[in-house]
Amino acid sequence: MRTKTIYCLLLALLPLFSSCIREDDFNNSPQGNFEALWKIIDEQYCFLDYKQIDWNAIHDKYQPLITPGMSNDGLFEILGNMLAELKDGHVNLYSSSNMARYWDWYLDYPRNYNEGIIERNYLGKTYRIAGGAKYTILDDNIGYVSYPDFSSGIGNGNLDEILSYLSVCNGLIIDVRNNGGGNLTFADRFAARFTNEKVLTGYIQHKTGKGHNDFSSPTAIYLEPSNSIRWQKPVAVLTNRHSYSATNDFVNSMSYLPNVTLVGDKTGGGSGLPFSSELPNGWGVRFSASPHLNAEKQHIEFGIDPDKKVDMSKEDEDNGVDTIIEEARKLLKVNP
């Protein structure tokens, strides 16, 4: 599907690997590590201007907090807080004892997911498992597939078995709520089962220089149809704020297919392809380096809106009902 595109992108990113901060660029002191991290983000993070972040002001805010004799834990906390200003779930700082992370991109929103209800009242005890997917046929002849983690592999053989088994159904629900991402190959492989033609789904760029707006021209991304079993009936894709990274990419691809309706909450975003570097003291830092745009060349970093906005009802949850699944079933019955 996108092997050639990703390969070309990785070739384009090679200059970034050679521009990593070296130990002799900054001394291994609290101040040196602070300046090294600030410079990495300043030169290589891809959303500073898009998010309207004044990175110089962030430097002036946190630099006075750095003292020569501060502990590693103290330094780690300050650097982690500085990175949190980016509001990006793809940005992490790693030491041997901790990982700084920003999770408010989903914690500040309704959960819109109850795994216990799904296991008990929808999947039941006899659901099937193929690769990373769980699937069953609901009592109204709607197929239901839960794919909670794109780090869990799924092969073409798995997808053939799933779609063959569900072929008797009138419609299909694909639940990627709480799927925080993983391997883009699995996301593309799954999406390729729902189109009969090559479809433009977006563009990708990469940094070409140290300036905040130094990017390559957008390179088109296409979803190509699988050469095996493809689904031809209506599909509802269920999303919540924890649908992130590779899942955001999957939802974006599915949004351009004619028989697909997105149901639930806005996705969490995370459209930047992550890249890693290292500080003088050996701490690792991961950050978004290459922005992914949709087919209209608009950023999807902040998430993708559903076609049908639905939140979980507390009353439904108390009664063991998943509001979002039920809304999807209604939509699929109206449009068989």
Rank of each mutant, 00 (worst) to 15 (best):
S97C: 14
N213T: 15
K266N: 07
K198A: 10
S96R: 12
I324W: 02
S96M: 12
H212N: 11
G132N: 05
N281S: 09
K61L: 14
T185L: 15
S226L: 04
L75M: 12
V199L: 07
D311M: 09
M82E: 06
R22Y: 10
I204T: 12
D318H: 13
V334I: 15
D139S: 13
T208M: 08
I21Q: 04
L262K: 05
T195R: 09
G180S: 09
N227H: 13
L75N: 03
L10P: 04
F17H: 15
T267K: 07
L83M: 13
L75T: 05
Y62V: 10
L279Q: 02
C169D: 02
G211C: 03
S253W: 00
L257E: 01
G89D: 04
Q63T: 11
S167Y: 04
L166M: 04
L279M: 03
N227F: 09
E85Q: 13
V199Q: 11
L75A: 07
Y135M: 10
R177M: 06
K198M: 13
S217M: 13
G124S: 09
I325Y: 06
G303C: 10
T219Y: 14
I142W: 00
S19Q: 15
T323N: 06
S146H: 11
S71E: 12
Q63Y: 12
L48P: 02
C20Y: 08
P306W: 09
F215P: 09
H212T: 14
R177E: 07
R189G: 11
K333H: 14
S313K: 08
G155L: 15
T267R: 08
S96L: 13
I78V: 13
S18L: 11
I324T: 04
D149M: 00
S216P: 05
N170L: 10
R2E: 12
M99S: 12
E317N: 10
